[in-house]
Amino acid sequence: MEKLYGKDLSVMAYKARLLAVEAVHRAASGHPGGSLSCADALTALYFNEMKVDPTNPKWPERDRFVLSKGHCAPALYAVLALRGFFPVEDLQLLRSIKSHLSGHPDMKHVPGVDMSTGSLGQGLSAAVGMAMAAKIENKDYRTYAICGDGEIAEGQIWEAIMAAAKWHLDNLCAFIDINGLQIDGKTSDVMPTEPVDKKLEAFGWHVVKIDGHNMEQILAALSEARSTAGKPTAILMATVKGKGVSYMENQAGWHGKAPNAEEFAIAKAELEAKIKELEGN
């Protein structure tokens, strides 16, 4: 596959958003808010940054990805489907008893999923183990992860952060999706996690701060991570929860709620208009 850049990446990210929101609508449950906030980073990873082969999902030399904030599975599944790991039609049965697409990522049943996640705080440790495995076996694959800003209240995340610094895992790059909201409200109210940059730097990580909806900045940060030696990189991306659907944007209430038919129609119209606008330019 030809790598995508700039506007083409953004178009793909909005297509993924539409598929993710549609899947959650059909399932009548799921997590649209965070799926929409990390859709750009996921698209940049799978359509530009990562070495993967959809025809050989278990290719040993592939780059690895761990969705530590596993509830954003709708976005991951949409990106994997668009990338060709499984048919896009499968998304229609998200969370159905008939489907392989369970509510949270399942590496045993979903092609392209490298780690089963969903219990917050655990994914980053697995990503650390994958990056260590690459070092142990002198392989050059890289490992990526996305954590939520609410998720990093979990103590295990900081255990993993310490370990990644101890073993100088410069083959590990973790996004922190800072959308500022979680189930019970603002992250700054529920359990303040800021200043994330200073904390990560103090823990020995290289830190890059970007706009998580700007593809140029995402790609530049990934490039910076690749050229950073001796330490892991955290990409702190400022994002909008619910990005791309007007009534979901910056609303904690859309963390884990499915749009009804009427609401989905509005979301679909907005996301399609955005795709058209981007393609038109």
Partner: peptide, 20 residues
């Protein structure tokens, strides 16, 4: 892995996912 058992178990999972 230091006094951080939960992370140790997660690291082991990641290593195993890569064939170790």
């Amino acid at each position: 892995c230091g006094i951080a058992e939960n992370n140790m178990v997660g690291i082991a999972a990641g290593m195993a996912a890569c064939g170790l």
